[in-house]
Design a protein around this nucleic acid. Structure first.
Length: 323
DNA sequence: GTTCTAGAAC
DNA sequence: GTTCTAGAAC
């Protein structure tokens, strides 16, 4: 029980979300990615979240007698395990069989993509490397080219992994992020009739263990977006959100790596930046006002895009497809 | 990461 | 009176 609710909530009853075969830059391994054929409705966060929450609760120790001491101990334990949830997913053997489709979007020999539990936009996914992490030359291998500890966050991948390993890890993540982006664009077209921007990047200071890459649509309309620091943490112009393309430039020229890692650690203050719209930079007195404002942006963007499509038969020129 | 809640802002 | 934020607790 609890998971019987269908995650499918869109008009197309059974259109499988299949990854495109067009990932030109992909290594051979990513072609063996397993695509879930289950859920469409990539952007139905609320329902999905309810599902999973129910499941988590069911597996906890809620049936024990209630008592202050016990409940304090229990909740603090489950609280800290939250920090390790991603690591649990990333180390699950055979994710397709062992992780529910309401959680898992994609899996390949060295990476998985999951639904963010508290989405900060209409589409919000996390991509992470699996562990053990097989060498890309031999995706079937059960040995890992790096330790679990070295995959704790971006900083540890940059500082603790060899040049080769960090390149393989980041490439695997980038390739899967590209597949996720394609799936999102498909879904955007199906549900709204147009495509909009998607951001791909890391948080400078993540709050859960195991390195994860955010793939998030730039509408920023999501049930999980409640605080100023949520919004600031995804602004590509502030510095707390680090686009993957920037990290890839870093590893091409790793001469300043220590400096860059130090800058990551100092990024906390950026979360306290005054609340302004990430699209037009207008000051927002509070979160409810921002939310209303973002809805307006989205509505206007959609209207403009649909008008443009009606007139020209397509949404945009190819030179805009650069992210 | 989220939830809870006291006190500020309205 | 209600809404909202930010910090403590989990």
């Amino acid at each position: 029980m609890g998971n019987c609710m269908s995650p499918v909530n869109h008009s197309r009853p059974n259109s499988p979300v299949t990854a495109p075969a067009s990932a030109a830059l992909n290594e051979p391994t990513s072609s063996s990615a397993t695509n879930q054929t289950g859920p469409t409705g990539l952007g139905d966060p609320n329902q999905r979240r309810t599902d999973r929450k129910g499941k988590d609760r069911a597996s906890s120790t809620e049936d024990r007698p209630v008592g202050r001491l016990h409940s304090r101990k229990r909740s603090s334990m489950s609280g800290s395990s939250v920090l390790y949830n991603l690591r649990r997913y990333a180390t699950t053997p055979n994710p397709t069989a062992n992780l529910p489709p309401s959680l898992l979007l994609l899996s390949s020999p060295n990476a998985i993509a999951i639904f963010d539990a508290y989405p900060k936009a209409k589409y919000h996914f996390l991509v992470m490397p699996r562990h053990p992490f097989p060498p890309q030359s031999d995706p079937e291998s059960r040995s890992s080219i790096t330790s679990l500890e070295s995959l704790e966050d971006l900083k540890s991948v940059l500082m603790k992994c060899s040049r080769e390993v960090r390149e393989e890890v980041l490439t695997a993540m980038a390739n899967m992020a590209r597949e996720v982006e394609e799936m999102i664009r498909d879904e955007m077209l199906k549900t709204e009739g147009f495509e909009w921007k998607i951001d791909v990047g890391f948080h400078a200071i993540p709050s859960m263990k195991h390195i994860h890459l955010h793939v998030i649509s730039d509408d920023r309309i999501g049930s999980g977006l409640k605080k100023k620091h949520h919004h600031n943490s995804f602004r590509p112009d502030l510095g707390f959100f680090v686009p993957i393309m920037e990290v890839q430039r870093w590893i091409e020229d790793d001469s300043n790596m220590q400096e860059r890692v130090d800058a990551l650690s100092g990024a906390e203050r950026l979360l306290h930046t005054p609340l302004t719209c990430h699209k037009c930079d207008e000051f927002m007195a509070n979160m409810p006002k921002l939310k209303t404002h973002l809805e307006k942006h989205f509505k206007e963007e959609k209207e403009a895009a649909l008008k443009h499509i009606a007139k020209h038969g397509r949404q945009r020129s190819s030179d805009e497809e650069i992210f």
